[in-house]
Nucleic acid binder design. Structure first.
Lengths: 196, 196
DNA sequence: CATAAAAAATACTGATTAGTATGAAAAAGC
DNA sequence: GCTTTTTCATACTAATCAGTATTTTTTATG
């Protein structure tokens, strides 16, 4: 990777960490360049505005991560119900980057940036739709293989699972204690079993 | 109500509206006093800091509203499952103040202010716990009256319902279209029926 | 009405914000 | 090596921010 490309990636990664923990609006460019040891000239060479950097974080950091961790595993799945549970459980309890008190990066950005910033809304919508469609496809496969009841509606379940995940992440932020995750997961288990 | 008390209440109400639509951090005191037609001297006579005003909004606007609209109706309920659905459905589709694109005021504040502001966390936790406990009590009553299965765990269901609500509110913000609510409500109906 | 206290008005401050103007260094192309 | 383009560095600006200092007006109380 060229030195310039490295500078750009460093900015994106460090900025993302700051934004995840502090929020987008309250993370200043001065703070970003201080922690990255990059000058303002360099920053504005790579990004025309702060928002352009924000979009780049979604496209170049969040999107690939989501592809790798959620989309591909789910697509390869043979047992949707088991894998939905494992996916959520992994995200809540085991993912090494995510922390209870900081919630879900995508959920946070959605809450903070919509409905005022169209660019953010579009980029985030694309991200979320990707995840949603993958879940729907997985449910359809499960219905064909007999693991899921035929009368289950994929879209409804997808929204229900993802909503619950975003919501419990918000509870986690509030309580800063992953015991809420454990309670939630028990009920998720029960809900998912009812799809069989 | 004295003129002073009226000034204070006006500030709280208008500030709350601004914060609901724009977010807390991005709503400035200058903006609040501009829309309320109140001077800075008056504002800082009533509130020592911006955060003190924020807490007052939670205590004096959000809390009474929640008491009136969610707590009392649920406590009076004879049929928990039906009333849970109606409560969520009302909030999503009928409440005259709430708007799809702005999400849930309590959820928004939680996302934005935790984990950095302890005062906010405490005030919001109190609010949410009130709601949660009311749901749990209602479930217990439902179990006694035979409307809900005995093996249902109240706390799990409470978290599941509230998480789903917060989450779908965030989806609403993202899509700015209440069709996501309709899809969500269908699955909620199905989930709740499984508690019988 | 007189006085004291409460309530509000005005003008300011220092810090922080995103973004810019300009020039210097580094890298690439020939 | 020379030139051009890319990449980065420094110093600045105008706007906005939460909060303060001070004074004036309004209200309550005797």
């Amino acid at each position: 990777m060229s030195k310039a490309a490295n500078t750009r990636l460093t900015i994106l990664q460090k900025a993302f960490e700051l934004i995840y923990t502090k929020g987008y609006q309250t993370t200043s460019i001065d703070e970003i360049i201080a922690t990255t040891q990059v000058t303002k000239g360099a920053f504005y060479y790579h990004f025309k505005t702060k928002d352009e950097m924000g979009i780049a974080i979604i496209e170049e950091i969040l999107k690939p991560t989501m592809q790798e961790h959620f989309i591909q595993p789910t697509e390869a799945s043979q047992n949707p119900i088991e894998d939905f549970y494992n996916m959520i459980s992994y995200l809540l309890l085991e993912d090494p980057f995510l922390q209870v008190k900081y919630g879900c990066p995508v959920g946070n950005l959605t809450q903070e940036m919509t409905p005022w910033n169209n660019k953010f809304s579009e980029a985030l919508t694309e991200l979320v739709n990707l995840w949603k469609e993958t879940i729907i496809n997985s449910i359809e496969k499960g219905k064909e293989s007999g693991l899921i009841r035929k009368d289950v509606v994929g879209e409804q379940v997808a929204f229900f699972i993802l909503s619950g995940y975003w919501g419990i992440r918000n509870f986690g932020k509030l309580q800063n204690d992953n015991s809420v995750y454990l309670v939630y997961l028990k009920e998720l288990r029960s809900y998912l079993d009812n799809l069989k």
